[in-house]
Nucleic acid binder design. Structure first.
Length: 465
RNA sequence: GUCCCCAUCGUCUAGUGGCCCAGGACAACGCCCUUUCACGGCGUCGACGCCGGUUCAAACCCGGCUGGGGACGCCA
């Protein structure tokens, strides 16, 4: 088996978005599957927009998702000399030339071409002018004039482009900095990258980069372009589609396994299987079965997956994960933390995210005096002589032993049967007293968790108020 | 405008010439379970964009059309 080296190369101009995250997952999986290496390269050559805090954020998201990387981070801004050395060899070998055209002149050329219905491109007028280095001069690739660039894409199959579509691209800007395509080729080669997995939006860069590889006489890596992730409306993912950064999903209380699982299944599949652990993915994902068509992001399915993982997480662990969200919900106020794990156990199947879980669990953690009643529920439950049932049961519960779920349940049933009531008359007001609402976990379980003292206090509070 | 890519239920997808009058999952809807809300179980709705080929046979192969997306920077 040949060595597999992949890389993920974000530019630190924003947080890690789900599209990038999915690409990173594919890269990581491919490397891990084949026992290869996965590198991270920070493409920070756009000094204006690049920020250290974004690099930090991207790395944090990467780790949160469970994607570890090999080796040191590569920062493109630290490798200018390296890129320039390659540009110089291209200049020396006659594969590149100096160009004195100004941006305005080139713009004019493009407009001209577009007006004629042609592809806007640089016309190569400095190719033979021998202008040499100088103020405002950049270096361009002396691209072949005829022929086709053909490559076999891992996900899209054969892609062919006529070189007439390409122009003599700039390799080094007039300020001495390399351009994106130049830097990428040098880096991928220097880092030993064997599989370049990246977003669909780069397909048109690939032929250009191949031209540079060829001019440099370097071996080509394998390319794989994964399609974009679209919004639920099939349009390009944008601000109006809500959360797009993985950090936002983290804040919304999503589990990283759920996000990874969801993202992987967007564009990749393994028969009818829906649930995959990271370990399982490592053994299953070999870079095949990738879908060439773009896919729409479906928040509903993400939440469903998250619910699956929420239920699969052991109660103690889930309580620990939920705690920060509960702390935030209480805004620093004290609450019955000793009931957290039990409450999480009772509500886990009723929540799709940690945020929802934290909100649901709140009513069991406040003190009786702070319990908030849902007005609609209150109006609905406190009909007829509902409070007499509450008072009667309160008296029964006060002397009940043991105070556990089965005994409590039996006690309630006895009360209902002996009084000739319907449970519908008795259950709702009791539930309202205990949780402030009319939905939720099995009542005896709630009381057992709250304990006798707290349960009685809540029943009293409703009767009094 | 030019070039490139894509095309199965609303969505994610299975499907690589006969097993498919197309399977699974999410969503929706209904029923069951249930003292409530959920979970769960069962079921319903629902797709091969269109037109031509090739073939005994096409969702699968070929061509065109239509529709969608992407790229055309001294951004990445």
């Amino acid at each position: 088996m040949t060595k597999v080296v992949t890389r993920f190369a974000p530019s630190p101009t924003g947080h890690l978005h789900i599209g990038g995250a999915r690409t990173a997952i594919f890269c990581w999986l491919l490397a891990r599957h084949f026992g290869g290496q996965y590198f991270l390269r920070i493409e920070d050559t756009d000094v204006e927009r690049s920020r250290q805090e974004y690099t930090d954020s991207i790395l944090a998201s990467m780790l949160w998702l469970g994607l570890d990387w090999d080796g040191e981070l590569v920062y493109q801004t630290q490798r200018t000399d390296l890129y320039n050395a390659y540009v110089d060899t291209l200049l020396a070998s006659g594969h590149a030339y100096w160009c004195a055209c100004t941006p305005d002149e080139v713009d004019a050329m493009r407009e001209d071409a577009r007006a004629k219905g042609l592809k806007p491109r640089y016309d190569g007028r400095c190719r033979t002018r021998n202008v040499g280095p100088g103020e405002g001069h950049c270096v361009r690739l002396k691209a072949p004039l005829t022929g086709r660039v053909v490559f076999d894409d891992l996900v899209k199959g054969t892609i062919a482009v006529d070189v007439a579509e390409l122009d003599d691209m700039i390799l080094r800007r007039s300020d001495g900095m390399p351009t994106y395509n130049m830097a990428v080729v040098v880096d991928d080669y220097e880092m030993g990258v064997t599989h370049v997995i990246r977003g669909d939006d780069h397909v048109s860069n690939t032929p250009k980069q191949i031209l540079i590889y060829e001019a440099l006489g370097l071996p080509l890596p394998r390319f794989g372009h994964v399609p974009m992730i679209l919004g639920p409306d099939k349009q390009k993912l944008s601000k109006r589609h809500g959360a797009r950064a993985v950090i936002e999903y983290q804040q919304d209380g999503l589990l990283p396994q759920a996000l990874v699982n969801y993202l992987v299944r967007l564009g990749w599949s393994h028969g009818d299987q829906e649930l995959f652990s990271l370990e399982e993915l490592k053994t299953l994902f070999d870079g095949t079965s990738l879908n060439a068509a773009p896919s729409a992001f479906d928040p509903d399915k993400l939440h469903w997956l998250n619910a699956q993982y929420l239920r699969a997480t052991p109660a103690a662990e889930l309580a620990a994960l939920t705690k920060p969200f509960v702390d935030a919900a209480f805004g620093g106020k004290a609450y019955a933390a000793e009931r957290l794990e039990g409450a999480v156990g009772l509500y886990r199947e009723r929540a799709n995210s940690l945020v929802e879980l934290a909100a649901a669990v709140q009513s069991l953690l406040v003190t009786a005096a702070d319990l908030v009643f849902d007005p609609a529920a209150k109006a609905k439950a406190l009909k007829d002589n509902a409070l007499t049932h509450v008072a009667a049961l309160r008296a029964a519960f006060a002397v009940l032993t043991p105070f556990d779920a089965p005994t409590l349940e039996a006690c309630m049933h006895t009360y209902v049967e002996q009084g000739g009531f319907k449970f519908k008359q008795v259950g709702p007001p009791v539930r309202l007293a205990l949780t402030g609402s009319l939905g939720g976990p099995h009542l005896p379980d709630v009381m057992a968790l709250l304990g006798r003292e707290e349960s009685l206090a809540r029943l009293d509070a409703l009767c009094a108020g």
